[in-house]
Every structure is written in structure tokens, then in C-alpha cells.
Amino acid sequence: MPVGKIAGQPVWQHRTPRARLALWAGWLGLVALFVYCWQVMTETTIWAFVHDAPAQAVDIGSRMLPPRWGYIEKLLLPLWDTLNMATLGTLLGVILAVPVAFLAARNTTPSVMLLRPIALFIIVSSRSINSLIWALLLVAIIGPGLLAGIVAIGLRSIGFIGKLLYEAIEEIDVSQVEAVTATGASRGQIMDYAIVPQILPAFCGITVFRWDINIRESAILGLVGAGGLGLQLQASLNVLAWPQVTMIFLVILGTVVVSEWVSAKVRQAIT
């Protein structure tokens, strides 16, 4: 802590004058940025709608309740589709992500100069693009249906699993690898005996975690035509059948809660 002098007396100050100035300037900059962004963003906003929103909310709320309970019969098959989309998509993602992770980890990549940057780019691309956008694209390319959803989930999962897995690979204990190498083991054997056992728990945890997230995501992919609950949601929204929408929301909520519980239990069991 700096000690300044005022009128010859030492005075304790929390920060130096320069640091204080920088801090204030920083805050001021942040506030200015916020105000500016706010103005740009709200330029096109029609405030009448915003003022009207509470009334709208009450209106929609009253139409949403009560949920149409009987509709659940029609939701069971889409729910099954949604679960399959999430699970198969996760499997696809895992299959694609594992090699990418090994290429991206500094200690296992065969080439630091070429393959590693490519692998890292694949990871960041997959992470940047939400599965809904992947689905939008894939529906346009290969047509609507579960396949587009599965591939979309898979493509999005590469980045997530790949990133966490390659970080886990980079954190492994080098001495265990060294010890197995010293026995005369081949590359494959080193992988099997020294690297895989060390990352296996992390790998399982990451996969289950991603599966949990994928259940949430696959529930809405149908909005763009990739099948599952989202498809029903889209259909209900189109005809403004709010009680059905509520029912779909409840089903999604239930699924999310259950999958989160399962994933938490499994992760607990592994570690």
C-alpha cells in the first residue's frame, strides 16, 4: 500500500493517485460504452410496444394457463426423438472430438506447427456456432429431420468435448508417461497404459455433462425443422395454441431436470 505525504505527514492511501485515476477512467469508459451501446441498440425500438408489454404479458399468461394436459400424448414420440437426437449426437460428437483433442493437446500432437492450429481452429469454430445455427444450416443442406439434428448436435459437441479433453490431456502426469516409455512401449501402448487411464474419468465426466446440455439443446432444434419437441413447439406457436406451448415447456422442463439429475449422479459416481 502506498504511503503519501500531505503537509509533511505520512498518509496511508488505498491506491496511488495514478492508479486511482486509471480506475476512475476505466469505470467512466465502461459507463460511456454502456450508454452508447444502449442508445444504438434502442434506436429502432418501438417504445409503445415496450410500454404495452406488461399488458401483453398478462394476456399471454392468461392464455397459456391452464396447460392442455391431454396434449402430452402427442408429445411422447417427439420426446423420444429429442432424447435420441441428444444421445446419438453426443456419440457422434465424442467420436469426432477425441482425435481432435489428441491433435490439439501440446503433449500428444504429432505436429505443433500445422496440425495443432488446425485442431484448435476446429474446436473454436465448433464452439462459436450454436447448435441451432448448425441445425439451420444442415436442414437447408440435407433436409429436415432427425439426421440434421444429430449432426448439428455432434458438430457443436466437438468443440466442447474437444476443448475440455485436450486441457485434461495437457494436465496429465508426465512421469507416468515417462515410466511406461522406459519399458520400451510403443506409441499405441503408451497411449493405452499411460495416457488413457489418466484422462478416462475426465472424459466420462465431460461426455455426460455434454449429454445433459445436448438434451436442452435438442429440445429446441425442431424450431428450425430438425425434429423432436421443437417441431411441436413451432407448430403450436404458429397457430398461437398457447396452452399447448405451456405443456411443451413443462415437458422440456421435466426432461431438463431429470437429465441434470442423472448427469450429476453419474459424474459423482465416476470421480
Binding site: M41, T42, T44, T45, V50, Q56, I220, F249, I252, V256
Partner: peptide, 24 residues
Amino acid sequence: RSFQEVIIAILLVAMFGFGPFAGF
């Protein structure tokens, strides 16, 4: 936490109209 951003967005767009304000 339990609802996807997209689901929230659907509801808020219905209340506040199209545009970035609902997104915000």
C-alpha cells in the same frame, strides 16, 4: 437456468415485439 435462451426469447418477443430489445 432451466429454460433455454431461445425459449425465453420466444416469450419475450411475443411480449415486447421483434427487435434487439427483446434480445437484450
